[in-house]
Amino acid sequence: MKLYYENMELWDFLTLPFYFLFVYLVLIWAAKSVLLPDSKYLNLHFFGLLLFYLTIGLIDFNFKLIPFFPDTNLFTRILETGETPFNQSIGVRIGYKYLAIPIYQLSLRSIYNYFLFNICFLHLGLIFLAAAFNQFYAQSDVWVQRFFLLLGAVAPSILVYSFTPLRESYFVLALGLFFYGLSKKNLLNIFLILGVLLAGILRVQLLLYFFILFFVQYLHKKKLSTGLLVVLLIFAIPVGYFSLNFLSQAILNIRITPESLSLFRNLQRLEYFESGVTYPEVFWTSWFDVILDFPGLFFQFLLTPFPVIIFIPFWTKLAYFADGLFLLFLLFVAIPIFSDWRKYSVWLLFIGIYIGMSAFFEFHLLGAVRHRLPATLLLMALAAKALAYLLTKYRWIFRY
Rank of each mutant, 00 (worst) to 15 (best):
I234N: 10
L229R: 06
T304W: 03
P102E: 07
F133E: 08
V144I: 15
I127W: 03
H220C: 08
F338E: 04
E80N: 07
F338P: 06
F22P: 00
L159R: 10
L149H: 00
L327P: 04
T304D: 03
G95V: 01
F264G: 02
I56H: 12
P37D: 06
T278A: 02
W347E: 09
Y53E: 10
S33D: 14
D38N: 10
G181C: 05
R77G: 08
F306G: 05
R399Y: 13
H45F: 15
G152M: 00
Y394W: 04
L108F: 03
L378C: 07
L233R: 11
Y112R: 12
V26N: 09
W347M: 12
V231S: 15
Y104S: 12
I56N: 11
L74H: 03
L206E: 05
I337M: 12
R395P: 04
L233N: 13
I256G: 09
Y354E: 10
A334I: 10
F171E: 00
A155Y: 03
M357F: 08
N245F: 12
Y4G: 02
I251V: 14
P238A: 08
Q135Y: 13
Y170D: 04
V230E: 11
L379C: 06
L65S: 09
P85I: 09
K2Y: 10
T164S: 13
P295T: 02
F215I: 15
K317D: 08
A153K: 04
K385R: 15
G48V: 00
L302F: 07
V346L: 10
Y104H: 13
L292S: 06
W143G: 01
L177W: 09
Y170A: 07
L21K: 10
S243L: 15
I193Y: 12
F13R: 11
Y218M: 14
D12C: 08
F69D: 13
I94S: 02
E80F: 02
L49R: 06
L10N: 04
R255G: 07
F178T: 08
G324L: 02
F350V: 09
